[in-house]
Design a protein around this nucleic acid. Structure first.
Lengths: 211, 211
DNA sequence: TCTTATTTTAAACATGCGTTTAACTCAGTT
DNA sequence: AACTGAGTTAAACGCATGTTTAAAATAAGA
C-alpha cells in the first residue's frame, strides 16, 4: 500500500514539471494523488515546503553525482569546455533511480524554479550545494583561461537560460518542430543537441579581450 | 494633463517588466498609476487586452524596423550569422522612441511573455509579425548552409532562451555578479555580451552531420 | 480491550484576484 | 437651463487560492 505522503510527492512532481509551481494548485495535486486536500499541509506543512521536498529529492541525487564526475575530471591535467559540460550527463541519467522519467522531470522542474520567481529555491540550492556549483564554475574557467571571469559568468547563465527555456517550452517547441518539418524530437534529444551549442558559445572568443 | 489610459499603460509596462504578467495584479497597476481599479476594464476591456496593448506598443515599432534591417542585409550576396543577429540591435535601440528605457523594458516583457504560459501572446505575435520571424529564420539558415533545419530550429530557440533568461533574471544576476567580483554590469551590456555567445553557438559544427 | 497517538476527512476561513454594477461627476451640446 | 454621454468612482460579486479547524476514523501500544 502506497503511503499518502508518497502519493502526494509523485503527483506534485508530475504536475509541477508540467505546469510550473505557481500554476499548480494544491487542489490539483491532491485530486491527482487521490488524497484529501488538507493532507498536504499535514505532511509537509506548506506548499513551499512541498516544493522544496520535491526539488530536494532530485538535487540530493544529482549534485553529489555531479561533484564526483567533476572530481574525476579534475585529476586530468587539462580538459575542455565540452569535457566539463559532459560531466552533467551521467548524473542526469542517474535520476532514473529516483523515477523512470527522472531526468526530464528534473530539468523541467529546474526550468520553472528559475523562471518563476522562486527565490527560496535558489537560496535552498546554493546553501546545500553551493560548493558543487562553484566547483563547476571554476573548472569551466580552467578550461577557458582566455576568458574573463565576468564573461564566463554571463555565458554560463546564457547557457543555463538556453537549457531551461528548451525544457520549459520543450513540449510546445517539439510540437512546432513536428508541424514545421514533420520530424519528431525526443525530450532527451533536446539536451544532447544543447551541448555543442553551449560548448561553442562558452568557448567563443571574447570581443572585449580583442580590443 | 496625462490621460488615465496613458497612466495605466506606463504603470503596466513598468510592473509587467519587473514582475511578469501574471504576477502583476490590476490593483498594483492602478495603485501605481494612481487611477481607479475599474478604469482598466473600462479603457482596455480586460487584463488580457491590456497585456496585448502593452506588447503591441513595442512590437509595432520593433518588428517593422527589424524587417527593414533584414531587407538591407538580404541585398548582400553573402552574410554571416553575426550579420543577421546584428540586425536586431538598431531596432532595439529604436525603442527609445517609445520610452526612454524601451529596449530593456521590451526584452524583459518578451522574456515573461515566453516564460509564462502566455499562449495568446505567442499567437498574437505570429499572426501579426509571423513573416518577419520567418524571414529572420531563413536568413540565419542562409548564413549556415551546413546546418539542418532541425538543428537550426533548436539552436535559435536555445538562443532565444539565453536572451530571455538573461533579461528576466537580469537584475538578480547583475547583483550576484556585483557581489562576486565587484563589477557593475549595465542592463544593455548584457545584450551585447550575448551576441558573440549566440553567434558561436548557432554556427557551431553539427555533430549529427559529422557521422 | 481499553487507551492513546496518528492520520484522514469535510467544512470553513481569510485573502486576493479579475470583473461588474450602479451611482456620480462634469464638460460639451442643444 | 436641461440634456447627453464619456469618464470616474466606491462597492460588491463570484471565484480560486493556501491554510486552519475540529471531529471522525484508523492504527499502535499497554
Amino acid at each position: 500500500m502506497v503511503k499518502t505522503k508518497d502519493k502526494i510527492i509523485l503527483a506534485a512532481e508530475k504536475l509541477f514539471s508540467e505546469h510550473g509551481f505557481e500554476q499548480t494548485s494544491l487542489r490539483q495535486i491532491t485530486s491527482e494523488a487521490d488524497v484529501n486536500l488538507a493532507s498536504v499541509n499535514y505532511h509537509f506543512g506548506s506548499k513551499k515546503s512541498l516544493i522544496q521536498a520535491v526539488m530536494s529529492r532530485y538535487q540530493s541525487v544529482f549534485m553529489p553525482a555531479l561533484d564526483e564526475q567533476l572530481s574525476r575530471l579534475a585529476e586530468h591535467e587539462t580538459y575542455s569546455t565540452t569535457d566539463v559540460l559532459a560531466c552533467i550527463t551521467a548524473p542526469l541519467i542517474a535520476l532514473r533511480q529516483v523515477r523512470i522519467d527522472g531526468p526530464v522531470i528534473y530539468l523541467r522542474l529546474l526550468g520553472f524554479a528559475y523562471s518563476e520567481i522562486q527565490g527560496h529555491l535558489r537560496k535552498f540550492t546554493m546553501t546545500h550545494f553551493g560548493h558543487v556549483v562553484q566547483r563547476f564554475f571554476e573548472m569551466i574557467q580552467q578550461a577557458n583561461p582566455h576568458l574573463s571571469r565576468k564573461t564566463l559568468f554571463w555565458r554560463l547563465h546564457f547557457s543555463l537560460g538556453a537549457m531551461l527555456f528548451a525544457q520549459v517550452s520543450g513540449q510546445a517547441l517539439r510540437e512546432i518542430a513536428l508541424a514545421d518539418f514533420g520530424e519528431e524530437t525526443q525530450a532527451e534529444e533536446t539536451f544532447l543537441k544543447l551541448l555543442p551549442f553551449v560548448a561553442a558559445g562558452i568557448a567563443a572568443d571574447d570581443p572585449e579581450s580583442q580590443i
